[in-house]
Amino acid sequence: MNCALVTGASRGLGRAIAVQLAKDHGLFILVNYSTNQEAAEETLTEIKANGGNGELLQFNVQTKTEVDEALNGWKEANPDNFISVLVNNAGITRDGLFMWMPEKDWDDVLNTSTKGLFNVTQNVIQQMLRKRTGRIVNIASVSGLKGVAGQTNYSAAKGAMIASTKALAQEVAKRKITVNAVAPGFITSDMTKDLNEDELKQMIPMNRFGKAEEVAHLVSFLASEKASYITGEVININGGIYS
């Protein structure tokens, strides 16, 4: 059975992506979460309500031993299942001016996005390489392309994801594995709930925030056979803010 692993799938973008992948491709969804089991269960309930199926898989993407233990254990218990789609979505923000930024805020943001990408992808890609197929989609951000004041850590983390997407895509293209990044702008979610939407949307040519479902449709396309010749790309989805 083909499966999709979505990291940080308990809410927001991760939840929308998990639901869409189940709906469009009939994939069995591994709903990864770190601490919020209740929210992860809500994601799974929504997947099932839309006719899909899946299970929860708890691990903190920052910790390699935890990632390997969870994924290797799952693979041993499910020898006939194959994670054919990986979405590296887990990410956090700890915004603040660089000159006053605590070291922990730098480390936590970088480790969630970049070390998380390394830990999860390195485990999952082994089977993709053996089977000579796979789709990897990394959720970056407009911050990783243009840089955002007050988000030096987040911009650095997402910029690193973009660069590693381009490099890894070249390494595995011959094995029919595609690696792409999606760079959302302002999307209505838990991550943007404290922002002044009325003020910020005036900067966006489309004059609105995006919806999580709109990003999910793009990820779903990149996970499909229709996108088999697209790799190493960073696709912006931001209403024209970075055009």
Results as ranks from 00 to 15, higher is better:
residue 111 N to C: 11
residue 133 T to N: 13
residue 93 T to Y: 10
residue 86 L to C: 07
residue 172 V to A: 06
residue 209 F to R: 04
residue 191 M to L: 12
residue 129 L to S: 00
residue 76 E to N: 12
residue 98 F to R: 01
residue 156 A to F: 02
residue 174 K to S: 14
residue 9 A to F: 07
residue 107 D to G: 13
residue 243 S to I: 14
residue 69 E to T: 15
residue 222 L to V: 04
residue 238 N to I: 04
residue 156 A to N: 02
residue 10 S to Q: 10
residue 148 V to M: 12
residue 129 L to D: 00
residue 33 Y to T: 04
residue 209 F to S: 01
residue 13 L to S: 08
residue 16 A to R: 01
residue 63 T to R: 14
residue 58 Q to E: 12
residue 17 I to R: 03
residue 30 L to G: 01
residue 134 G to Q: 08
residue 6 V to E: 07
residue 66 E to T: 11
residue 100 W to H: 14
residue 158 K to G: 10
residue 188 T to G: 06
residue 68 D to R: 15
residue 64 K to G: 11
residue 110 L to C: 12
residue 34 S to F: 10
residue 230 I to V: 12
residue 28 F to W: 02
residue 232 G to L: 10
residue 242 Y to C: 12
residue 184 P to G: 06
residue 43 T to F: 08
residue 149 A to D: 14
residue 179 V to P: 05
residue 93 T to W: 09
residue 126 Q to P: 08
residue 216 A to K: 02
residue 135 R to Y: 07
residue 89 N to G: 01
residue 194 D to S: 15
residue 74 W to C: 12
residue 208 R to G: 06
residue 145 L to G: 01
residue 124 V to K: 04
residue 219 V to L: 04
residue 72 N to F: 02
residue 126 Q to H: 12
residue 114 T to Y: 11
residue 197 E to P: 09
residue 63 T to I: 13
residue 81 N to T: 12
residue 33 Y to I: 07
residue 115 K to P: 11
residue 87 V to G: 11
residue 176 K to W: 14
residue 219 V to T: 04
residue 65 T to K: 15
residue 108 D to Q: 01
residue 151 Q to H: 11
residue 113 S to E: 11
residue 119 N to A: 09
residue 74 W to A: 08
residue 223 A to L: 03
residue 112 T to C: 10
residue 65 T to L: 15
residue 192 T to H: 00
residue 89 N to A: 09
residue 22 A to E: 03
residue 195 L to A: 09
residue 139 I to C: 04
residue 222 L to A: 08
residue 133 T to P: 09
residue 7 T to P: 09
residue 28 F to H: 09
residue 129 L to A: 02
residue 198 D to L: 05
residue 183 A to K: 01
residue 195 L to V: 07
residue 150 G to L: 03
residue 61 V to W: 00
residue 78 N to K: 07
residue 232 G to I: 05
residue 202 Q to V: 04
residue 30 L to K: 00
residue 2 N to E: 15
residue 7 T to Q: 07
residue 91 G to F: 03
residue 138 N to H: 06
residue 181 A to F: 03
residue 192 T to L: 00
residue 233 E to N: 14
residue 190 D to L: 10
residue 179 V to K: 10
residue 150 G to Q: 02
residue 20 Q to R: 15
residue 223 A to N: 02
residue 20 Q to P: 09
residue 211 K to G: 10
residue 240 G to K: 06
residue 183 A to Q: 04
residue 4 A to L: 13
residue 97 L to M: 13
residue 229 Y to V: 07
residue 181 A to D: 06
residue 62 Q to Y: 01
residue 7 T to R: 06
